Amino acid sequence: MENLLDHISSEIYQKSYVIIDDFIDEEFRGELLAEQIELVRQGKFRHAAVGKGGQKQVRTEIRSDEVHWMDSDDLSPLQKTYWEKVEEIRKVLNQRCFLGLRSFEGHFARYPVGSFYKRHLDQFHAVPHRVVTVILYLNESWSSDDEGALRMYFPQEDGTELIEDVLPIGGRLVVFLSGEIPHEVLPTKKERISITGWLKDID
């Protein structure tokens, strides 16, 4: 785990993002997915909103996913185990990258068939305290035919952009600086499940 944490911190420092395959084992991935399915069955998911506070609203032309926020004071045993893994990432990023990260917030994210999230930044004027985005995919299987990639944009000095598409393969972890990398979720042809969260510089 220590070598993996070193790799994560090195890539964030040098490139602002990192992709880790098989961050969790298949058994744990399956357990988290089963918990998510049960939460859906219980009606715990809600349409995701955009904006903050009084400006918050559901706008399905911008994003059409559904979310269930996790309560850091009332985590299930599985959620607590994942929280502890993210805590290790928080510590190493503070040690190596001096980001001043103090807390984590996260939710299960469900993208039904045909849903998407248009290009955006995770850190903006209404949510300035999100410093690092952390996404863990829980899908049972995924291929390029299923689409639904995370598309990341990398602005270049000459005004052009490089694009990298990341398939939401189960067990894959994506970590990036929230205020630096514009991204979107392309329309998916299969239900798409993740835990999406943010390391923040406030408690």
Rank of each mutant, 00 (worst) to 15 (best):
G54E: 13
K118W: 01
E184R: 06
R172G: 11
P112A: 07
E184P: 04
G43E: 00
E27N: 08
W142I: 10
W83Y: 14
S143M: 04
D146S: 10
G159S: 11
E88Y: 07
I193Q: 14
E180L: 15
L33A: 10
D71L: 10
F108L: 08
T160H: 09
M70Q: 12
I20L: 13
D203Y: 09
E35F: 05
L93A: 14
E27K: 11
C97K: 01
Y111G: 14
E157K: 14
A149N: 14
Y117Q: 10
A126D: 15
R192L: 02
V18I: 12
S144G: 04
D25Q: 09
G106P: 03
L138P: 11
A109K: 06
W142S: 13
F98K: 09
Y111L: 08
E140L: 05
E61C: 00
R119P: 01
L4W: 03
R59D: 15
W142N: 14
I89S: 09
R192E: 02
I169D: 08
S144L: 13
S115M: 02
R46N: 04
F28Y: 11
R46H: 11
E11A: 14
H107G: 12
P168A: 12
P182Y: 01
L121A: 07
S115W: 06
E157R: 14
L173I: 10
W83E: 10
D25G: 08
L5K: 05
H125R: 14
I62A: 01
E157H: 08
E105I: 08
L177V: 11
I135R: 03
S115L: 05
L173P: 10
P77Y: 06
A48L: 01
R192D: 07
M152E: 09
E164K: 15
V113C: 05
E31R: 12
L32A: 01
V86C: 09
P128L: 05
D201G: 07
L93S: 12
T196R: 01
P187Q: 02
V175W: 07
N139C: 05
H68M: 05
L32V: 08
F45R: 03
L33I: 10
N3E: 14
G51C: 04
D122F: 06
Q57W: 00
V185Y: 02
G197C: 02
V166A: 10
D73E: 15
S144F: 07
L39R: 13
E88W: 05
Q55Y: 03
L186W: 06
R130S: 02
Y82C: 06
A48F: 00
E147T: 09
V40I: 15
H68F: 12
K189R: 15
G159N: 10
D158C: 05
V18H: 04
E87Y: 08
